[in-house]
């Protein structure tokens, strides 16, 4: 399996989400991760994501944000993605509204999670590539989201 196939559970990808706020989209993505068995306590993880949000801006520019949290409520490192029909307000490096949200769920302990964490970091690296972000923004299906990273 490629890094992307391993990192991305199709069930944790939401295309054209109608979420209207940062809070709504975070809750939606965390719920998807819970359904996929990656998060054990949705409220607990949400709280830890907001802890990280309070420490610094997670909008990386070009309408993309990468909220993330290290949490005991995460059972397995994972990533969830939402593309939004309407951009939402979000603190970002270029003050643009956010239309793509990529949520990283990180386990509190690295023990037994090294492989997954390595995969997440390789996945994160791809987000430094503007071409990937452009393809991601154009994606209209779960498959197109996955292909954007290949």
């Amino acid at each position: 399996m490629t890094v992307v196939e391993e990192a991305l559970d199709p069930n944790a990808i939401v295309v054209n989400s109608s979420a209207k706020s940062k809070d709504e989209v975070l809750k939606e993505l965390i719920h998807q991760l819970a359904l996929a068995g990656k998060v054990s306590d949705e409220a607990g993880f949400l709280k830890d994501v907001y802890v990280r949000e309070s420490e610094g801006v997670t909008g990386i520019g070009n309408g993309v944000s990468i909220p993330h949290g290290r949490s005991v409520s995460v059972s397995e490192p994972a990533v969830a993605i939402a593309t939004l029909t309407t951009p939402v307000e979000w603190e970002s490096l270029d003050d643009e509204k956010i239309s793509i949200v990529i949520l990283f769920a990180v386990t509190d302990s690295t023990e037994g999670a090294q492989d997954h964490l390595k995969m997440l970091s390789e996945f994160a690296k791809k987000l430094g590539d503007d071409d990937v972000l452009e393809s991601l923004k154009a994606a209209q299906s779960v498959d197109e989201v996955i292909v954007a990273f290949e």
Binding site: R52, I66, R70, V106, L120, A124
Partner: peptide
């Protein structure tokens, strides 16, 4: 956190 910004 050492998972996202570092690698981006």
């Amino acid at each position: 956190v050492g998972i996202a910004h570092t690698y981006i």
